[in-house]
């Protein structure tokens, strides 16, 4: 399925072919791989030696207390170029909270990719919680993605994307008025 990345200009196709490994799959000799968290925790020293990029994908039921992860999260995972979150069905909304926690609480700065069952109509919310990469269905019209993330000219809630909220804009307006500016 095509991979796309949100950029400042709009949308770009990710040319790299990423192989996503399921639990128990053997590691291929070469190529970019997205490995399940369990494999990463087991073999991260080996995985770090690979010449080609390695990312980790998280299941939607990942323990977000992150307690079980120990140093694996703080030390290594946050330095990965790609962390992906799986949407087994598009209605499973746990990934939105996992994304917000990874970005806001743990400071993950690499690409955060939504994989699995991702609908164009969900990417505007996904961008707000911190996703910037998307695995979309074959034949998805890219202009729909661009429309989706510029859909709402104003937003109420503070979220990972750091957009100035309606409340902040009103507050700034009120303050400016108050000082006669």
């Amino acid at each position: 399925m095509p991979l796309v990345k949100k950029t400042a200009e709009g949308v770009e196709l990710i040319p790299t072919a990423w192989t996503r490994l399921a639990e128990g799959d053997a590691l291929p000799d070469s190529g970019a791989v997205l490995v399940p968290l369990s494999l990463w925790l087991e073999q991260r020293d080996t995985l770090r030696q690979r010449a080609e990029p390695v990312g980790v994908w998280l299941a939607s039921n990942t323990d977000t207390a992150f307690a079980a992860w120990g140093e694996a999260l703080a030390g290594d995972l946050l330095g990965l170029p790609v962390v992906a979150i799986d949407f087994p069905v598009f209605g499973d909304g746990r990934g939105y909270s996992i994304a917000a926690l990874l970005r806001q609480r743990h400071g993950y700065r690499g690409e955060l990719r939504a994989i699995g069952n991702v609908l164009v109509d969900q990417v505007s919310a996904m961008v707000r919680v911190g996703f910037d990469g998307f695995e979309v269905a074959e034949g998805t019209r890219l202009e729909l993605l661009e429309q989706a993330w510029s859909r709402f000219p104003a937003v109420y809630q503070t979220a990972t994307d750091g957009r100035e909220t309606i409340w902040q804009r009103r507050a700034a307006f009120a303050a400016a008025k108050g000082t006669g500016a």
Binding site: F90, G93, Y96, A125, M126, V129, V155, Y156, A159
Partner: peptide
């Protein structure tokens, strides 16, 4: 109402 309108994190709840 305003906070919950199109809340990005809580639109696909259980």
């Amino acid at each position: 109402r305003q906070w919950s309108t199109i809340h990005p994190e809580f639109t696909y709840l259980p």
